[in-house]
């Protein structure tokens, strides 16, 4: 379990990701990036999908990356990373690596590059079993192009392509369960994490990179512009997503679901919605009925997850018991 001191020492030794990038003031994305990169022991190679992170960290001729970094396009980060990882295996086998030794291949892609346009490449890479850690920084919309809805955008959120208006309460559809989709690929490690819970995220990265196969971590990452909150509230709002059970922290190890951090008490979903301008229209009297739909959605997903975790826990217990 990496501690903050261990992570800080690693960054002190080698800052894998530098300041001086042009991501927004108070952006959640670099928090996720640093937590991930500082939790990995081996040398790291990063593959990045097109998005805020890529655009704002590599304006030619400068780069914020102090590790090998590759960007090809939007929808193919997992595929490009497959090639890099395969090249590593091929070169290592014939002793032709420039620097020999273990390496960790990390993909960073936003929710658009993961849930939507990059889903096929992700699926292919997972099925082929490349040893990659795929990190989705999920800020729940296409932020790089100006806050358009993605299939990760929650029900009711107002975005520039699902705007709340006289005839609309924002996004009409619920977000897709990307974790379940990824789990269906039978990969060894899948997890959901949040930038607010650094220890949980860091532990997950450590477990993910110890697996012999693909690993996927979906990290809830705030966007002050797209979500409409004061920059300074980023961590507080990410934490509220966890505490309201909108974004439970769990992992799926070899198909077994397990909660990694349960809320001590479950807050009502409005506690998370209220500080964000993208949901403010839901609090208008005419939209109350849509607002009222959200709590049962969250409750149902949370209960399903708890049931799933309980089932898998009893299954592992049963597996441990000696036969009668």
């Amino acid at each position: 379990m990496p501690s903050l001191k261990t992570m800080a020492r690693r960054e002190r030794r080698q800052s894998r990701f530098q300041g001086g990038h042009s991501l927004c003031r108070g952006c959640g994305v670099p928090i996720a990036v640093r937590a991930v990169l500082n939790s990995i022991e081996t040398p790291v190679v990063v593959v990045n999908a097109t998005g805020c992170l890529e655009v704002a960290t590599t304006r030619y001729p400068a780069t914020a990356w102090n590790v090998p970094w590759l960007h090809v396009a939007f929808e193919n980060a997992a595929a490009a990373a497959s090639g890099v990882e395969t090249a590593y295996r091929a070169l290592r086998r014939r002793g032709a690596l420039p620097v020999d030794g273990p390496m960790t291949f990390v993909v960073f892609a936003g929710d658009g590059g993961t849930y939507d346009i990059g889903l096929q490449a992700l699926s292919g890479a997972l099925e082929r079993g490349h040893r990659l850690l795929y990190v989705c920084y999920d800020n729940e919309a296409y932020m790089n192009t100006g806050i358009q809805r993605s299939s990760a955008t929650p029900f009711g959120a107002s975005t520039s392509t699902s705007p709340a208006g006289l005839e609309s309460f924002g996004k009409l559809e619920r977000r897709k369960d990307i974790t379940a989709i990824v789990v269906a690929h039978h990969i060894p490690y899948v997890a959901q994490a949040s930038i607010s819970h650094w220890q949980d995220l860091s532990d997950k990265v450590a477990r993910a990179t110890s697996m012999d196969g693909p690993a996927f971590i979906n990290v809830l990452t705030t966007c002050q512009l797209g979500w409409g909150h004061e920059p300074r509230l980023a961590i507080r709002i990410a934490r509220l997503a966890v505490e309201t059970c909108f974004w439970p922290l769990y992992e799926v190890v070899h198909g077994r679901y397990r909660l990694t951090e349960g809320p001590l008490r479950k807050l009502p979903i409005e506690a998370w919605l209220r500080p964000q301008a993208r949901f403010s229209h839901l609090f208008a009297p005419e939209n109350r009925r849509w607002l009222a739909e959200i709590q049962p959605q969250v409750d149902r997903e949370w209960e399903d997850l708890l049931a799933r975790c309980a089932l898998d826990a009893s299954a592992s217990d049963a597996a441990r018991e000696p036969p009668p």
Partner: peptide, 19 residues
């Protein structure tokens, strides 16, 4: 690969990696 788009993308990754 699961498509030509990914096949070419993987080839780019591998070629630039040094293979």
């Amino acid at each position: 690969a699961e498509s030509e788009h990914s096949a070419m993308s993987a080839a780019v990754g591998a070629a630039l990696a040094g293979a």
